[in-house]
């Protein structure tokens, strides 16, 4: 009879603290590297005159970076829990770090453009590969695609966040590219803003829905024991719906609601982090038992991903807005 696992690895070679330290350093390094590449600021006079596009692009990238940070910390912790029993499990946090750096960097200089694009594409690819791994992990367990395995085996939604991070990064190319290539005498640029805004709105809206699905699964696992747990499965879908509505038919009248719901979703990311920190605290032993509770309690790095997606959504609205403004 085949064994469930052929792994003969002994106990982890390092502790959760080490993993978090490395992940934290990775995060910091990614931020520093990305921010250095980003200079000079878009607000500087040297920026091509397309502030709406550049600002929107930056916002999308900020969103992608936040998403990447969430993935980095979450995957580092979850894969630590899974003992990094497959070397590929290191790829997730590593790729997330690259994704953050790439997202923060501004692809202004020609020589950076390709590497950054590769960074985003890498996140996308690794995310999809991870999805495959996780599907395989669930499928091979007794019970297969049972609820128990969906709850507790490798989470299918998690690699999806890496996919989204890469996707947003790539999508951010569009407005920036437009901004850079813009010709003052191009009379149609505002229309193209609109198209790109709508494309971004569709991407961000769909991403929000995907994220909501994962949150629903995990909050369902937690039996929605706190009514607040319904917030992240009701507010983000509302925001997503209004975004998708804008993508399909960008009407100014309903944009205020879209903006409001996205801002609320962004705030929810922070509030959720607070709730999750409280959730860890209320588990047996609280933070004193953090070696267990940081892993077994609600995932603290997860909720902030909503903030990232909401930023991208807001950027999409900015672009759509800009499309409606008169040419300067």
């Amino acid at each position: 009879m085949a064994h469930v696992s052929n792994t003969r690895r002994t106990t982890s070679r390092f502790a959760l603290g080490d993993v978090l330290a490395v992940a934290g350093l990775g995060l910091a390094a990614a931020v520093v590297i990305g921010a250095r590449a980003r200079r000079p600021s878009v607000r500087a006079k040297t920026v091509p005159a397309a502030p709406e596009a550049a600002l929107a692009a930056r916002r999308v990238r900020d969103g992608a970076a936040i998403l990447g940070a969430s993935v980095l910390l979450d995957s580092a912790m979850e894969h630590y829990r899974g003992r990094f029993h497959n070397a590929a499990m290191y790829l997730a946090p590593a790729t997330a770090a690259i994704s953050i750096a790439a997202a923060l960097a501004e692809p202004r200089r020609e020589r950076l453009e390709t590497p950054l694009r590769i960074g985003h594409a890498l996140a996308l690819t690794v995310g999809f590969a991870g999805l495959g791994f996780h599907v395989y992990n669930v499928a091979k367990r007794p019970g297969g695609f049972s609820w128990n395995n969906l709850f507790y085996a490798a989470p299918l939604g998690a690699p999806g966040a890496l996919v989204l991070s890469g996707l947003l990064g790539l999508a951010s190319e569009a407005p920036t590219g437009l901004g850079r290539e813009r010709h003052r005498d191009d009379e149609h640029w505002t229309e193209r803003y609109g198209e790109e805004g709508r494309f971004l709105a569709a991407v961000a809206g769909a991403s929000l829905l995907a994220e909501t699905a994962e949150v629903w699964l995990l909050h369902f696992r937690g039996a929605f024991h706190n009514p607040a747990m319904y917030l992240p499965v009701s507010l983000p879908p509302a925001a997503a719906a209004s975004l998708l509505a804008q993508a399909i038919a960008p009407r100014r009248g309903s944009r205020a609601f879209a903006r409001l719901s996205l801002r609320a979703t962004a705030v929810l990311g922070f509030a959720g982090t607070g709730f999750h920190i409280y959730g860890v605290q209320r588990n047996m032993g609280g933070w004193r038992n953090w070696h267990q509770n940081a892993l077994a309690g609600p995932p603290t790095p997860a909720p902030i991903s909503f903030t990232g997606l909401a930023l991208a959504g807001l950027a999409a609205l900015d672009l759509i807005d800009a499309a409606g403004k008169p040419n300067r």
Binding site: H3, V4, A15, M284, A296
Partner: peptide, 15 residues
């Protein structure tokens, strides 16, 4: 107690 275990699977061992 208060700390239990995180890894419950086959050959899965907490530090």
């Amino acid at each position: 107690s208060p700390r239990g275990y995180v890894r419950l699977g086959v050959d899965a061992i907490d530090p």
